[in-house]
């Protein structure tokens, strides 16, 4: 396309899917990156299947190792539409293989393909576990939260880069100590007009929605699937409440 930058329609997931030759460096890295960001839902799925935290951790690493070695990409062709569905299908395949092989992979064998903070994983899982939920539902819900968390991190980073960390702290998704400060109070504290705070709050919310959308786009094979994926996540989250 003419100009400095084209409309960027390649998503990370489509990069993985479109790689005809496995040596194409971009595709492997895109997959690695996706895995690194979306391991928590897998961990939750495994925990929900009553694996111990240590086993769940080993299985996550083993699963990603096999995935990144391109052993599973072809196996799940019909599920290839979205990264979320692909990952769950691939995980199921992997688990059935592993059961046959008595879960050959043990902690310490090989180099972990992703860095996985087991304590965070366990605390995240424990804080959101819900009784009677199927592993699949648990996966889906954690997935939705992973998407939102990624967008939150991005929002926080953008605000800091723009020197607006204080606004982010005052108006961002998470409140410290749960207090909901009024716009007037924030305005007074930050030396802004109340109207400016209102506008900033609106923009922040708007930006967050955009970031969520962008994040979701990376996990589908084509931008046109974004809406359907959002609707799916909405359904997952709405059913919880």
């Amino acid at each position: 396309m003419p100009g400095g930058s084209a409309t960027f329609l390649t998503t990370q997931w489509s990069m993985v899917l479109s790689a005809r030759d496995a040596a194409s460096p971009g595709s492997r890295e895109a997959l690695e990156s996706l895995c690194a960001h979306y391991w928590l839902p897998i961990y939750a799925f495994l925990r929900r299947q009553h694996f111990t935290p240590a086993d769940a951790e080993d299985l996550v690493q083993g699963f990603f190792a096999s995935l990144l070695a391109h052993q599973s990409l072809e196996a799940v062709a019909p599920e290839r539409g979205r990264f979320r569905s692909f990952l769950l299908a691939a995980l199921r395949n992997y688990l059935s293989d592993q059961r046959d092989r008595e879960r050959a992979l043990k902690r310490g064998a090989g180099i972990p393909p992703i860095s996985l903070d087991a304590d965070t994983a366990e605390s995240q899982y424990a804080s959101q576990v819900s009784d009677g939920e199927t592993p699949e539902r648990c996966f889906e819900r954690q997935w939705a939260w992973s998407v939102l968390r990624r967008a939150e991190e991005q929002l926080s980073r953008e605000c800091r880069d723009a020197g607006k960390a204080d606004l982010h702290a005052a108006l961002g998704p998470q409140t410290e100590s749960g207090r909901n400060e009024s716009h007037a109070a924030i305005a007074a504290r930050l030396g802004m007009t109340e109207n400016a705070v209102r506008v900033a709050a609106f923009r922040l919310r708007q930006r967050f929605q955009e970031l969520v959308r962008r994040e979701i786009r990376e996990t589908v094979s084509h931008p046109s699937e974004v809406d359907a994926e959002i609707r799916h996540l909405l359904e997952v989250l709405a059913n919880r409440s």
């Binding site: 998704p173 749960g178 959002i230």
Partner: peptide, 24 residues
């Protein structure tokens, strides 16, 4: 929708996703 502890109500996940749909 129930809000998790510490979440500002303007950033309710369901409303956010609906907003993201609207952008589309």
């Amino acid at each position: 929708t129930a809000l998790p502890p510490g979440r500002r109500e303007e950033f309710c996940v369901v409303c956010t996703l609906q907003g993201a749909l609207e952008i589309g």
